[in-house]
């Protein structure tokens, strides 16, 4: 599956063009009847009219949010699959999304719905705690981390946290009414302010991931290989987990628990790109962005008034893929 450097670079450019096209298409879709010419004018000849404002402050942030969340989740999933050598690793399945969701629901329960602009830090804390617990479970004991235990441990932590979430929602119908759309995963109504809030975390997360890409490739080939190459595998893994928390936490803070992107995209990328994480990561980021943008456009088009939460669209596509992987990629 090794491709030449120039082919890979060219492919990456093509994907980037697709992502840009996806952003443009996304900006053109919406409830308000705003034509393509208006969109062009909003950027070329901005006059502060309401249509311009809608494009600049509502549609563009929404499209950016979708692309950013998709990129974060895909990269986080790729890193998780790499360091755990588990084809099924994904922030959703391993309970990280559930941790962030529980933290956010608790926040709303305690402080009320008006605290909604301050979801982000709580989502991070929740994601970090869940990631630490699941990672700890996976690496407890002698010997190496066991993919199987990680998957089951993650699933159990996810089950546990979501039953806590349910508990909180049962206690307060108000909280449920406020939060339930968010719980399904949605990028509706995300504004630039929110994106600005989380962008530092995302940047650090991406930088960390890219910096670790060589080490993760070695880890993917086996712990012995990595150690043989003189790596401090413990340090690599800890830093990689940190980047996963930053990326997945940001994604949940923006869009709620969107599942399966982190699972599906890296596999698709690996199929075309091979095993080198220096290429897998940028490809995952761009394709993740395209996929979530597409899913968001579909959610808006299928039922224009009942916006389907985008997390549902991704689940419908991703879940069968997970089962396919479990059937065919797991050999033990």
């Amino acid at each position: 599956m090794l491709r030449s450097r120039s082919t890979l670079l060219f492919g990456l450019l093509v994907c980037a063009v697709f992502l840009a096209a996806g952003l443009v298409v996304s900006v053109n879709f919406g409830v308000a009847g705003i034509g393509v010419t208006d969109v062009v004018r909003a950027f070329g000849d901005y006059d502060g009219s309401r249509d311009d404002l809608i494009i600049r402050t509502i549609r563009v942030p929404r499209a950016l949010a979708a692309a950013l969340v998709g990129a974060c989740l895909a990269v986080a999933g790729a890193i998780m699959q790499g360091i755990t050598r588990n084809p099924l690793a994904d922030p959703g399945i391993l309970g990280i999304n559930a941790g962030a969701a529980f933290a956010v629901v608790t926040t709303v329960f305690v402080f009320g719905g008006t605290a909604s602009s301050t979801f982000a830090p709580f989502a991070f804390v929740g994601a970090a705690i869940a990631a630490t617990v699941v990672y700890g479970i996976g690496s407890m004991g002698r010997g190496r981390m066991r993919p199987m235990r990680l998957a089951i441990g993650g699933a159990a932590v996810a089950a546990l946290l979501s039953s806590f979430t349910t508990a909180t929602l049962v206690l307060s119908e108000q909280t449920m009414d406020t939060i339930r759309f968010w719980l399904a995963g949605s990028v509706l109504g995300r504004d630039l302010e929110l994106l600005q809030q989380i962008s530092p975390y995302v940047l650090v997360g991406f930088a960390l991931a890219l910096a670790l890409s060589r080490q993760v490739t070695a880890l993917m080939l086996g712990e012995e290989v990595a150690s043989g190459l003189g790596q401090k595998t413990g340090l690599t893994k800890s830093l990689a987990v940190l980047s996963v928390v930053l990326l997945a936490g940001s994604a949940v803070a923006v869009a709620g628990p969107v599942g399966f992107i982190g699972l599906v995209v890296p596999h698709a990328v690996r199929f075309f790109v091979g095993v080198d994480y220096r290429w897998i990561l940028p490809y995952s980021a761009i394709i993740g962005g395209i996929v979530l943008l597409g899913a968001d456009i579909i959610s808006r088009v299928v039922l224009p008034v009942h916006e389907i939460p985008v997390g549902v669209t991704t689940a419908v596509v991703g879940a069968p893929f997970f089962i396919y992987l479990a059937r065919n990629k797991v050999s033990q």
């Binding site: 308000a32 549609r59 509706l188």
Partner: peptide, 19 residues
Amino acid sequence: AAYPADADSASTGLEGLAE
């Protein structure tokens, strides 16, 4: 009229309100 009379599910953003 485009929005359902009896559903909680219809959710729209500020864009819908502006429209």
